[in-house]
Structure formats: C-alpha cells, structure tokens
Design a protein around this nucleic acid. Sequence first.
RNA 1: GCUUGCGUGGCGGAAUUGGUAGACGCACAGCACUCAAAAUGCUGCGGUUUUGCGACCAUGAGGGUUCGAUUCCCUCCGCAAGCACCA
Length: 800
Amino acid sequence: MYNFKEIESKWQKYWDEHKSFKAVDNSDKKKFYALVEFPYPSGVGMHLGHIKAYSGLEVVARKRRMEGYNVLFPIGYDAFGLPTENSAIKQNIHPRVLTDRNINVFAGQLKKVGFSFDWDRVIDTTDPSYYKWTQWIFLKMFEHGLVFRDKTLVNYCPSCRVVLSNEDSQGGKCDICHSEIVQKEKDVWYLRITAYAEKLLEGLKEVDYLPNIKVQQENWIGKSEGAFVDFKIKEIDDNLRIYTTRPDTLYGVTFMVMAPEHPLIDKNKDKISNMDEINKYRELASHKSEFERTQLVKDKTGVKINGLTAINPVNNEEIPIYISDYVMMGYGTGAIMAVPAHDDRDYDFAKKFNIPIIEVIKGGDISKEAYTGDGEMVNSGVLTGLKNKKESISKMIEYLTKEGIGEKAIQYKMQDWAFNRQRYWGEPIPIIHCPHCGDVPVPYEELPLKLPDVENFEVGQDGESPLAKIESFVNCKCPKCGRDAKRETDTMPQWAGSSWYFLRYIDPHNDKEFASFDKLKYWMNVDWYNGGMEHVTRHVIYSRFWYHFLYDLGLVPTSEPYQKRTAQGLILGPDGEKMSKSKGNVVDPNDIVDKYGADTLRTYILFMGEYGLEAPWNESSIKGVARFIDRVYNLKDKVIDKEGYSSELEGLIHKTIKKVSEDIESMKYNTAIATLMTLVNKYSEKDNLTKDEYLVLLKLLNPFAPHVTEELNEICKLGKPICESTWPEYNIDKTKEENVTIAVSVNGKVRATIDVNVNDSEEDMKKKALSEENVIKNIDSKEIVKIIVVKGKIINIVVK
RNA sequence: GCUUGCGUGGCGGAAUUGGUAGACGCACAGCACUCAAAAUGCUGCGGUUUUGCGACCAUGAGGGUUCGAUUCCCUCCGCAAGCACCA
C-alpha cells in the first residue's frame, strides 16, 4: 500500500500554504456558493455522518473550481447549546474553555480529511463579534413586532429544566435528552414565525429542494382553508367562535366541543352548574401523558357543560356544548362544531355520549361509521341538492359572510417559536424589564450584550436561568427613563446562531454590519445546501424565516436563501442499526483515516450506496476501495512519455468523462466511482498508458481522492497541480460507439445477440437477426406478425 | 390513521422518456506466485435443469396495459422516516 500518511499531510500543507480554496470577493468569475451544515463541536469529535455530509458537496465544490467558478465553501462552528453546558458542568470547566477545546479537535479532524474549506472565513456562533449580530437581528424583529411575551402552556423538559419550542419537542420527546415533555404554564418569549407561514409556503415554489423536503416543510406549516363561524350562546350575551374546514356540513352539527382550557368556561363559571365535574376533568386532562393522548384515540372522553347551550346560526337549533381533550387550545379557536355524521372523531364522541347523528351528505352508511367522502347534500337548507363539495363550501361561506355570522379563514399548524431558554450557554436576550416602561430593548450601540463570566452556571432548582444569580448583570438602568431596571436573564435557543450563519460567511470580519449588501449581492443565494433530514422542520424553516424577515427590511438581496437543498442518508453501524454509544456499534472516522487514509475513507463513504439513503458500514467493503486506489497508484509505472488518447481507449474515456461529470451533478457518487473503477480495470489490461490517459483519470478521481491524485500528477510530471487545473471535457460524438452488440428477441424473449454497425439499414439488421440459428429455431414454423427494430438497442420478432 | 420513500443474488448496490436484469464492489471458490501465509494477479460466481448448445424460472405477492415491464396502472403484503385527535 502506498504511503498515504506522508502524501496526505504533504498536500494538506500545500493547500494551506497556497490558500488553494480561498473564495475571492468581487471576482469577475461566476460564483458558486456551496454550503454544508456547520458542526456542533461536541466533545466526542466528528462522526462518520459529518464526513458523509461534507464529502457530498466537497466533490461538487472541487469540480466547480476546476470548471472555473469562484467557489465559496465555508465552515464554522455552531457552538452554543445545552450539550456543551451539561458536559462543562460534569467536567467542572467553563463552557468557553470546553468549546475552544472542542473546536480545535474538530478543526484538526476536518483538515485531516482534506476538505477544501476556505479556512479564512471560519465563524463561531459563541464569539461576541458573531452573536452581536444575532442579537442585532433579534432586536430588529422586536422593533417590527415579531417578538412577544406570553404566559401560556408550553413544552417543558423536566430533566433539562428548560422550555422547548414545538420544533424541539417533536414526538413529545426532548430533542436533547429524549425524556418525556410535559406541559407547563410559563412566561415565554415568542418569535412570530406564524406571520411568515404563508411566505414560507409560497417561497417553496421558487426553490429546488428535494421533493420530500418540500413536502415535509409543507406538512409542518400545515395550511388549511375553512371558515370561522360564530355560534350564539343562549344563556349569555356572547358568541362561541369555532374554526371548521367543512362549513358545508353546518346543518349536521349536533354538539359543540371546547378545549378544556377554553377561556369561556372560567368567564361564565357562575352560569355553569357542574363546575366541579368540569374542573375534575380538566385536572385529569392536564396530567395525561403524551402516550395516553395519542394511543387512546378511539376512546373519547369529555364532560357536558350544564348551563350553556349553543344556537346553530343556520337553523336556530339548540346544541349542547362539551369539553374534551381531543380539541386543542393551540389550533383554530380552541373550539369546534361537531358533525358526527361526517367526521370520525366526532362520530366516536357522539356514539360514546349518545348524541344524535344527522346525515347531510349522501353516500355512506352513518349507522356504521362517519362518511367523509363526497356526495349530494341533504337536509341542508340552501345547500340541499348540491353535489360538489367545493361549491357547497363556497356557497356556505358566502352565506355566512352576508349574514355576519362567519367568514372565510386560513389556519396553520405551525405555531410561534418559543425562543427563550433558562440556561447559561446561549446568546443573552437583549431586553431590559423596566417597571415603568415595560420591556425595553438594549440600545443597538450597546451590543454585543456579553455573557457575564460566572463561577456557577447551573440552573436553579426552580428552573430559573443561571444568569438570574449574577446581580451585576441583572441590575441595570432603563435605557428609556434611566430608572432602576432588570435585565432579561434567559438566553436564546441553540437554533438562533444558525439561523443566519450562511450570511456571515460572506463577510465574516465586518464590524459595521452583519454583512455588506454588496458582498451579499455577489454571493447570494446559496447555490446548493446539503444537510440532514432532521433539520428540515427545524433549522431550515427557522433560517428561511429569518432570511425572509431580513429581505422585507431590504437587507438581503433575494427572497429565498437556498436555491437548492439536498440531504444525505444516515450511515448505520455494521449491524444495520443506528450508530450509538449504547449499542457499541460506533465507527470512529479517525481510526479509518489512520488505517486506510482520508482518500479511501472519503471515496468509500460516497461509494457505499445511493447518497440520499441510509447504508450500513462495512469494514470489508472499504478494502475494495482501498484496493482500487492502490491500483490507481500502481498504474503510474505504466505511464510513457506520449500524449493523446490511444484509439482503443478514446471512446471509453469520453464516455467516462460524461458519466462522471453528470453523476456528480445528480449526487450519484456511487455510480461515478463505479465508472472510474471500470476505467481502471481497462487501464490495468494495457501494457502502457499515455500521459493524457493517466491525467484524465487523476482529474476525474481528484474530487473524491484529492491527495493521492495530486501526488501522482506530480510524480508523473503531468502538469500543474490538479486543484489549479481544469475539469476534463468530452466530445459527444466520441461517446457514441460505431459498432454495437444488440439483442434479438422472439416474442420478448432474448434468443441471440448480433453485432451491428450504426450505419446498417433496418433491412440489413432484420436479415442478420433472422439468420441467427437460435432465432430460427425459436420462430420454428410460426408466422412472423411483425418485426420491431429499436436502433442500437434491440430487435423483437413477433410470431404467432 | 395521514404524508413521503423503499422492497432486485450470500451482502452493499447497478439498470426507469419501457428495450440483453444483476454494472461496480464485497464475500466465497479455483488457479498462479510463495517453503508457507499475507499481499497481488487471473478465472468463476442468481436458481433449477443439461455432457454440451440450450431450456425454464426469477426484480415483495397478485392482476392489467404493451411486440416487450425492475421501470407505467390497479389491488394487497412488508419495511423505514416524518407528522399525529390540526376540526
């Protein structure tokens, strides 16, 4: 095996010294901005997932440079957050010290793998010169009414003692420690991301994301169109407003349901005769675990509110009102009209509580189950006889609007972003609480509002932020009135710094703005962004939101940040399971680099399988790639002092250039490498190779295995370093073979193959096909109905 | 339950504007080199059957469209990811 250790460190040094991958501002060249998700510098160092995520775009970035682009391929560290803080507490060192230490480990590892990042643009979200601008954008949002405070039920992790956003508690589990989330009433800072729901949805139309990424974001935003309808309540002078997507079924309403926390209940408790029962149910509902709430879907629970009766606005029928936990306070108005005949959940509820079921759409059997399909409207006043759902809905909305009892409405599942965390290691929220002026923003010129240096950064037992204990930090003067005031002591969530980092790469040392508009204009959009599927409904949504906001302020030049977004599949352990410490199936990339070299590791990771799918690690398969690179290395002895391509290799070489070039663009790295293997197999059969034949192989392989290809290029004196050279070109005419072997089939079954020339006439080919012995045998005495000729592919003889 | 994928040899995986299924790699077997092993090189490698040519079967299951289906359509089964009582 060749000496990869020496070769790899030699070329890494060369690239470093020559700043080979420096992105140039204000260049005349076409730009290409390739972005990978910057790592969270955890204590355990990089894992194989990082290498796979970065290798994908690394190959594209290296190819683009050779194609003449000015490439920005940056890296940095997303370093604020709970894991570092928890680990710092455990090891009893300061998170700052730990973060610096971890960043060093990561930088060393990234360089050892030979990624072509621009190391002059490294950013660290925990650096005050960086988070100054995170705070600045936050204040801009505050200024524009996108930041608000509310005391509501929120997702709370009792183990981390911290409030979490919806995005951070998907599946009812804490994103950090995976323990069960509980609902707790808390005072929370929100970012009004819902104000951008429509823009985030619309923006998806103009970008090139993988289809599943788009779909997942659309589902997360969860737009639905329907109507608000106001139901009068008989006993009081008030309306119960509900949201429905099916106003066409209004005549089928037989009861109403409110969420247990609905404010109307407490407001009218003196009118309600069974408050005790209701309070008991509310108490019970609030203690239900996530498991119970999702598993017992069929078994509906609830309590009828005695003393309040709703009036159906379309027919003045009196309708009972219930509370039940299958209605959520956080969506719509927290109350629904129930149409058991045409909604599964309402049906289950009605059956359990013996409530009448009135059919208003024909087509099902409502004695057995709810009918949710289309059909003719019955028992429905003005709608009766209509057959088209859309028409019925719009006619009803028209009616509601005219009568002043309802209106068209749009709702989103996405909720506002709970933005404060009761922890130390995050950006301080730059707000001052003044007893006279309320919440006052820290003046822009006082940014960055630095994290105070503290001894003890553990969370208080009651869940208050560690910063609350630092009196010198907490006590301050109100910037507005100058009187005594107190600082907000919560910090921003982990996702804050990453919501705009791709903009900072463009102008990382600017101390006047987060980035200059001129530079943004040259570099934006990000042409290609690759990362994990797990960030699709978190980071990618959040950062699009921040970017849309900045666009509305005129501070960034385009409406969407990422032109293209792709995702890599997981690398599983050798046992086919997700890698995890507890399973003991974790493969450390360092060990692989030491054993086989970075070139082999990078190439193998991209050879494993389809890039977007998960694939298990296989220690013996990597040997195949090591062997391949070794064979490429040994070919150097066959190179003779001659130029051009030999005639027997020319076609194959042009085809290989075409295939590898196209496969890289569509992330089909595995077949690109397989094609190169085929070329190497052919080269191995030959006694000698021309310089050009060898060079084209080295260039095509270079994005995957940059070190060894540079070395071989130098050893064989083939020209300037490959990273400063150009990408090979192919001639389309030379990729087309003159003579091809095509199949001859009889009734679709292949019976023979014949060699034909592209210039042969159809008649000649038919004649040739019909003279094949095995073809004749299979036609036998049957009648030839027709003969289908597909040029260059197949001849099919149809017999009867 | 809903959404989105996926299902091909012993294994990872190729092949889709429908056109020779199994590229490339791993594992395995045989041969060469070697005192021997490793490394390397060469050959073979879906199943059944045949001395051989070949024949038949085979891309989760069953149907359909077609001269021809891994590819398109319908039904079903299984696996994975995400969402989850969203009215």
